[in-house]
Simulated scan of single mutants.
Amino acid sequence: MNDLNDLQSKIESLQNEINFKNGLISILAHDSKSLFGNFVWLIEAIEQKTISEQDFFRLLPQVKSDAQKNLQTVQDSTAWLKTQYGDYKIKPEKIPVVDLFHDLQEKYVADLKQKNLNFYFKGDTKAFVETDRILLQYVLDKIVNNAVKYSLPGQDIYLQEVTEDHQVVISVVDSGTGMDEKFLSNIYTYENPVFQGTAGETGVGLSLKIVKNFISLMQGSIKIVSSESTGTNVSLFLPKLKE
């Protein structure tokens, strides 16, 4: 019976991996086709003088936004590919949680200032987590990025740490726009809608799918609790530092 359960688990794991890769390819193909199609259309319109210079410059901000979104997709895909090829191995190290907070605080200083957001740390400033730094930094970066994206001016964002018996829980909590509960079940699939940030930011939703993949590589889990208009709490459950 145990062998049957193990086999079923492996089959489900392989199916999830296949779905992830197929979804990734689909997103890359769709976005690239859309972006380059817009470029070609603009160039041809200028060559054939079917649009005015005024219309051309009016369209540039949207083209720039599409290009930035496409670049983010490529960067996310590259981060994931590094874990799939070249014999990538998890490299656990002792990481102070508060150092992760300071790194994020420094990276997002301009975005936080632009939207008038406050970013705070809650928890034990001496707490550590033992895991792969590259993967954890990627995961937290994407979660904080979403928190900033969906927060309204003047709101607070927290990076919280709680050390339990067998795990360290790191949470990113915001009081932003949140999402309806009906969307949560599809948050890691390729059918979930693309949400727009409070300053018009957009994304393809790929980052959270890679986040879940990376959390699995770190032998941890992720939980998202969100409610429309009240905010979102994303918690990472990671194995506790070995004594």
Rank of each mutant, 00 (worst) to 15 (best):
T73A: 00
E130G: 03
Y158R: 10
T202V: 13
K10F: 06
L59D: 14
D180L: 14
L104T: 01
T177H: 03
T125D: 10
E243H: 11
N192P: 08
I51H: 03
F119I: 00
D180W: 10
L152S: 14
L208C: 00
E191W: 08
G86H: 10
K223N: 09
K49G: 02
G200A: 05
V97A: 08
R133M: 04
L135Y: 01
K212M: 05
L7K: 12
F20K: 11
I143G: 01
G176K: 02
S229V: 11
N213G: 09
D55L: 02
E12P: 02
E201M: 04
Q15D: 14
T125Y: 09
T198V: 10
S175H: 15
G220Q: 06
V139E: 07
K91W: 05
H166L: 06
E93D: 13
V168Q: 05
K115G: 14
L100E: 02
K149E: 04
F101K: 01
M218Y: 06
E228C: 05
D55V: 14
G176R: 01
G203V: 12
K209L: 00
E164G: 03
T198G: 05
A67M: 04
Q155R: 12
P153W: 00
V144M: 10
L42H: 12
S171V: 04
R58D: 15
N192L: 08
G86K: 09
K49D: 06
N22A: 08
H102E: 14
Q137G: 08
S185N: 10
K91T: 11
L217Y: 07
Q8Y: 08
Q72V: 02
L217G: 01
K94A: 14
D31N: 14
V204S: 06
N70C: 13
E228S: 13
I210Y: 05
F20D: 03
T202E: 03
S32T: 11
M179A: 03
L152N: 14
T163K: 07
L136S: 10
L14I: 15
S13G: 07
K49H: 05
Q8I: 15
D99I: 10
I157G: 06
D174S: 12
E164Q: 08
G197T: 04
G231T: 04
K182L: 12
Y188F: 15
R58E: 15
L159W: 11
F101W: 12
F183E: 02
K89H: 13
D99N: 06
R58G: 15
L4N: 13
E191K: 14
E243A: 13
D99M: 13
I18R: 06
I134C: 07
K33I: 05
A45R: 03
K33V: 02
N213P: 07
E191L: 07
I143L: 11
I25H: 05
N5K: 11
L241P: 13
G203Q: 09
T50A: 06
N233W: 09
E17Q: 11
F195W: 05
E47H: 12
E161Y: 07
D141W: 00
S26C: 02
N186V: 07
S32V: 06
A45E: 00
A147P: 10
N22M: 12
L236P: 03
I43M: 10
E191G: 12
V194K: 10
Y88C: 02
